[in-house]
Design a protein around this nucleic acid. Structure first.
Lengths: 247, 247
DNA sequence: CGAGGAGTTGATCGATTTCAAGCCGTGTGG
DNA sequence: CCACACGGCTTGAAATCGATCAACTCCTCG
């Protein structure tokens, strides 16, 4: 098991103090995909005034497991991980979020997992109380949040099958396909993983060595090709699909 | 891994054809806990008219993984499991639901997991389309559904840590504490598990033999006592808590 | 009271973890 | 511009936990 402690790479998070250039929703890159999409212009302005734009560096943690739920946010840009740990430091990544996703625990007192930037990232951050109040008054926002939460739950439950019942080979195959779906591959079919081997292991509930071995074996079989440290080309997608479900 | 195929114990489910004695919400046992709680009397009546009361026998499956999402329901009484399987029949239970819980996939085309009664059960069943429409018009209902879905997601993510990172011992200890929390123990501290060893194994992502061995070992250490097949007395709760988190 | 399914226990096997080098490529400093 | 050092990754060998295979026991229900 992973006994490596991911020491937070920041002390007091400068989120609260750093003044951010105010920016309108008009130029927002996730304007048409985030949960605020359907809001009327005045409503979106009102929500925008509640929130602040915030920049994170790779490795920074925005929320810690068990902390009071103080903020929620839209991800404007970048990739972040959601994780929980056992008392002795074994970590399980319980979600990876991308641009336009929503993070934090609305309508609840505790943040049940930590949120850490994997790449540099930008957030549109809201104090939870204000967001909750706003959402209560805006059924369409709440509806989109519900939709998203239901989708998250479906995805999370599907992942439980992987964690509980799949072999290492199946786990890695499933992971690669899942990543290919989210980060759409370039013309050559190559994806650039936003995760280290350790983080992949923490997603799959296995070890770094096992991930590495399975990747090497898939390469040996000509099913994938490895391009540098983080690049993977899915050569034989059908074979991967077959492996992902136990044959 | 569990290669045992759980053959559905029913052919065509007689849900749709069996006429149920109409029953008002007044006598409903979960009236003050289900998602419909906060509705005004006329609203609740309107919702009630959309739904039907349905009785299930232990072993009956209400929804199958991958099927079109046709119905959603409140659980009035009984215990049900939510499960997914790999192509070759390995099963992972992704949730256990009790009286007052909500089942099914609103606002989505597919049911992502099967729902099967573990005990005899009673449901308050709604056609999905009608329920969705009703929920859209009733922000308070939608809010409760959101609350519940967020809680489910938190619980599910916590379970990922168990599946991905905990040892067999820790899994069983965590499971017993979780069950004790839900089924509040009687005066002697004894709980009656609503699950067979196989089902426990399917929840914990392990095998029946491992569950049995870990239970026996906990008994030998005087941490629990086994009472018949399904009874467990938590003798030393603190020790269990310690085991549940890796020491 | 007896049968059969559920659960327990034992023995063995094997996949994955753990421990231990070694490699590679990336960035830095001479 | 090249050497080198560090971190991330790969690979190998040994150890281990849990799975599998196989009896056997014990409830529970007819």
């Amino acid at each position: 098991m992973n006994m490596q402690f991911d020491v937070a790479q920041n002390g007091a998070l400068p989120l609260m103090t750093r003044p951010c250039a105010p920016q309108s929703c008009d130029q927002c890159g996730v304007r048409d995909r985030a949960i605020c999409t359907d809001l009327s212009d005045p409503d979106r302005d009102a929500l925008s005034r509640i929130g602040r734009r915030v920049t994170l560096h790779a490795g920074q943690t925005v929320m810690w497991e068990g902390d009071d739920s103080m903020v929620v946010a839209n991800v404007i840009d970048g990739t972040l991980k959601l994780a929980t740990s056992t008392g002795d430091g074994r970590e399980q990544i319980v979600g990876v979020v991308y641009a336009s996703d929503f993070i934090g625990r609305p309508f609840g007192a505790r943040t049940p997992h930590s949120v850490t930037a994997l790449t540099d990232a930008r957030l549109c951050l809201f104090p939870r109380g204000s967001f909750d109040a706003f959402a209560r008054d805006h059924g369409d926002l709440q509806h989109r949040l519900l939709q998203r939460t239901l989708d998250d739950l479906d995805r999370t439950r599907a992942w439980m099958l992987l964690l509980g019942r799949k072999t290492a080979r199946e786990k890695v195959a499933t992971f690669l396909l899942d990543m290919a779906r989210r980060l759409q591959a370039d013309q050559a079919g190559t994806i650039e993983l936003p995760l280290s081997r350790q983080q992949i292991a923490d997603i799959l509930g296995t070890t770094i060595e096992t991930v590495s071995r399975q990747m090497s074996e898939l390469k040996r079989q000509g099913i994938i090709a490895l391009v540098g440290r983080r690049g993977v080309r899915l050569v034989d997608g059908a074979a991967l699909e077959a492996l992902a479900e136990g044959v």
